[in-house]
């Protein structure tokens, strides 16, 4: 009897150890998306190699303070999401709700900051047609921004679910899937920001 229980708890432990958070399908989506960004990063580097002067002089016109602060915002947002998942698993509904609100607020802050940055560039008459560097700058950050917008919708839904206490603490698959997507949005920016703003 006790031996049986031991093997049972061992297999539970094993299962817990090999757990992939969220739906496997979301991981397929995330990996495909990251592959596309990998290709985009390579295209940017090859473009930079062909015209280093234009890329360097245009890069210097970017304000790294925006990019750096945006990185801090997204990292903090991701941290809130981790804490929210943890809170749900501990059945601390209030905590989960507040952390998700925090993560959502960070996402909004990122969008506001990006809007200010784009407005500044457009006011200087710089668009994606100005040169190849700005073409990459606007398209790469624009595609990433669409991911942020989609992620904020997901966070808002999760926040409402946490408020209504409809997330199952035993199997928070929806929350974990959303979290996986949001962390991907974060890590893509972690790579994209130095690539565009800091590579000299």
């Amino acid at each position: 009897m006790s031996a049986e229980r031991d093997t049972c708890s061992l297999s539970v432990l094993e299962k817990k150890r090999r757990h992939l958070p969220g739906l496997e399908g979301v991981w397929v989506f995330v990996t495909a998306d990251m592959t596309v960004f990998g290709i985009l990063f390579a295209l940017f580097m090859v473009g930079r190699d062909q015209d280093p002067e234009i890329f360097e002089s245009s890069r210097q016109s970017l304000n790294p303070d925006f990019g750096g602060v945006n990185t801090l915002i997204l990292l903090t947002s991701s941290w809130f999401v981790v804490l929210a998942v943890d809170a749900v698993k501990r059945k601390e509904g209030d905590g989960a709700q507040h952390y998700l609100a925090g993560a959502f607020a960070c996402g909004v802050a990122f969008m506001v900051s990006k809007a200010i940055e784009y407005t500044q560039k457009l006011n200087e008459n710089i668009t994606l047609l100005t040169n190849d560097f700005y073409m990459y700058y606007f398209t790469l950050t624009g595609i990433h921004l669409m991911h942020v917008v989609a992620g904020n919708v997901v966070l808002a839904v999760l926040w409402f679910m946490a408020r209504a206490r409809t997330i199952d603490p035993e199997r928070p698959t929806v929350l974990e899937s959303g979290a996986t997507y949001w962390h991907m949005v974060d890590l893509l920016w972690v790579m994209l920001f130095p690539l565009l703003y800091l590579v000299r």
């Binding site: 496997e24 399908g25 979301v26 397929v28 495909a32």
Partner: peptide
């Protein structure tokens, strides 16, 4: 399940094509 998510990914992979109107 994975094929459904891949389908959604393939569907949204068309969005950058809108830039063909400008570049």
């Amino acid at each position: 399940n994975w094929a459904c998510y891949l389908t959604i990914f393939c569907a949204v992979s068309f969005f950058p094509a809108s830039l063909t109107g400008v570049l």
